[in-house]
Structures are given as structure tokens and as C-alpha cells.
Amino acid sequence: MLELFSTKIILFAIIGAVLTGYTCSLMGTFVVRMNLSSLGFAMSHAAFAGAALGIFLRKDPLIFALLFSTFVSLALGPLADKAKLKTDVVIGVIFSLSMALGLLFLNLSPDTAMSSTAMSILWGSVLGMTTADIIYLLIITVIAILFVIMFFKEINAILFDRKLARSSGINDKPFYYLILLLTSLTVAFSLKLVGGLLVFALMINPTSSVYQFSYDMKKIILLSPIVGVISCLLGMLMSFSFDLPTGSAIAIVCSAIFGISVLISPKRRKG
């Protein structure tokens, strides 16, 4: 079945998978450690609703996905920051609202030609990767990596304990918001490959898997993106071979990796 696709499409799919897996899981290490999972969840569904609105308006879905996910991160960020956020309430409200809006917009889009785009923002698609998508992904990946390298000290201290970081003279607020912003951008740019419903799995599962094996944050930051890349590549392969939606395949692979990690984790071994 592989020979049905041109080399360019396959090459783009592979590059897209590597970049998406890398950035999602890199940001995922921060999201997991800083207990921002519910926020990430809300962002990814908002991005889906935004993309659906874009399709309905016949505009670029990506721009609306970006707007929606960034809006959620900036609106809910301060609440989460002050621990004034009941996370399950937010998940309930944002999840149901964005699903309702997203499906509504898709339903209202009369153009059946759009239905493959609609499907892809829900479940992801390897075949839709355009040159522009790859460039955007590359830019956000480079920004995320530079961010981590340049501010490694500050990020590391904040990931350990924000209050302690502040007590040692680190201005933690800008970093918190930069992490949120980068996460929302990553979510929006990953929509194409993984889809709005499952991008969250790609943020959380690889990091959570690596957590099972290491007590060293430096290693977790280094290794999680690699597990993310592997998940994406394997998922893509599965999606090609069995004609599955890419997002589902990637989510299945990284959930399986997480499940196995928990089972063989030395951290959970007794004695």
C-alpha cells in the first residue's frame, strides 16, 4: 500500500511525525511536572473547536486553532496559577463546550469536500502535511528547544518547586506563561498530524512513561521527546499499514508504551 503514495508525501509525513512527537512530548514534560494536565486537555479541545470554526468559515483552520488554544491558556493560566481552579470542573466545562462547538461547526459546514479535512482535525492525518505545516512545526520545535536550552536553569528550578525558585531570585511568572503559551502553540500545530482529540495523549503518555524509569529531570527532559518521536513513527506506520486514523494509531502506541512502562517500572517494584 505504501507505493501508492509519492515519496514527497511519505517524507513529509515522517518529518511531520518526528517534529510533532518531539515538541509535544517536550512540552508534555513541563505539563506533567507542573500539574497542568487539565489545562493541556482544555487547550487541545479548544484547538479542535477552533479548527472546526475555521473549516466552517472556510478559513485556515490552523489560525483558529491557534487563537482558541492560546485564548484558553491565557484565560485559564492565571486561575490555575493561583490554585483557584477546580480542575475537574474545567475539564467538564471546556471539554463539553469545545466538543459541542467543534461538532456543531463541522456539522454546519455543508461542503462535503471538506469532510476529509474535518476528519483530519478530529483524528489526525499523515497525508495532509503541507510544506507550510512542516515549516510551522519546525519553527515551533526550534523555539521550544531553544527555550529549554537558554533557560535551562530557570526552567529546571521552577519544575522542582516554583516557590523555592522564587525564593532563590528567579522570576517564575514569565516562565510559567511562556510554558503555557508554547504548549498551546504546540497543540495547535500538532492538530494536523494527531488530531484535536488525541494530541493530549501524545503530550502526557511519553513523559509519563519515562517518569517510570528516571528520578532525574534532566534525563526525563532529554528522553521524553525521543519516546514521543518513536510513538509517532510507530503510530504512523500502523496507520499506513492498517489504514487507521493517524491520531488513533499514535495514541494507541504511546498508551501501550505507557502501560508497559508501568508494568516494568523499577519505581513500582516492591522491596
Binding site: 511536572r33 529546571n156 522542582f160 523555592l164 525558585a165 517518569y211 528520578y215 529531570m217 519505581k267
Partner: peptide, 12 residues
């Protein structure tokens, strides 16, 4: 399960 080593915490 806090994923930080003693030496890193001190250096921080």
C-alpha cells in the same frame, strides 16, 4: 517520586 537528584537541588 519527585524527579530531582540531591546534587541538582543544591546547585539550583
Amino acid at each position: 517520586l519527585t524527579p530531582f537528584l540531591v546534587s541538582d537541588v543544591v546547585l539550583m
